[in-house]
Amino acid sequence: MNSIIEAINKGIEQSGLDRNKISIPSDIPFEPETVKSLGVDYFQVPRGRAIAFGSGLKLGNPELKIIPVVGDLMTLGGNHFVHGTRRNMELLVLCINSFVYHKVAGKSVPVVTEAFSPYSTFEEPFNFPHLGNSCGAVYTARWTALHTAELAKSIAEALHKRGMSMIEILAPGPSYYRYVTDLDSELLQFYFENSTVKNDEDPRNAAITADGKIIVGKFTDKERATFIDSYNIQHTKILGDAFTPHGSLPEKTGGGNG
């Protein structure tokens, strides 16, 4: 998790955005010191609600840049992801996938954590970039906790996208592994050996399978009207001068000026 925080930090740095205007609603706990060092506003929300809460933050003040951090494979709140992406809410969703790998009978299989799943797991993980792209995300990428430089670059790029961006981050479960450094490093070794960078890969081909390599990279980057753009266009069309557009207008890209 620390390497992810570091990547978020570098990503924000590279984006050149004002840290004061960045909010991170997260269902994964951050330490107060971490938040302080990032210089952002942080909200630890009930599990699964980071995207919905973040949508509210954004609509309440369109000047803000919102980075919802979601975990638990979005089993809770997956629908917020699907619909937030569909309506292209301007959020950068960091999806922490702690579906880690473990060798069982000589073969690598995904497990949630050994603590919760003593007999390993038989379920397949989500292909998040494919899900996000199908729903209309304007930016999709996947990196592991090992690819901090690439992850930081993706975060910097995605923060300038208008619309819903999503980056899947494969990482060890944050709390269970916090003190188990051996396993941590073992896992990072696993990521190192088993991942392969394929930028611009069609996300349909990027499913994580038990036998194959983990495909990482920046997969898609496109343009689509955001929720706020569409909201403004629609109401201006119907109401004309009676309607005052909300937030910054589409031609002004970047941080927005309220």
Binding site: P25, F43, A52, F53, S55, G56, L57, G60, N61, N79
Partner: peptide, 12 residues
């Protein structure tokens, strides 16, 4: 989603 969004907006 509705209630989570209004809580977010309240904090902005």
């Amino acid at each position: 989603g509705s209630i989570s969004a209004i809580l977010g907006a309240a904090w902005s």
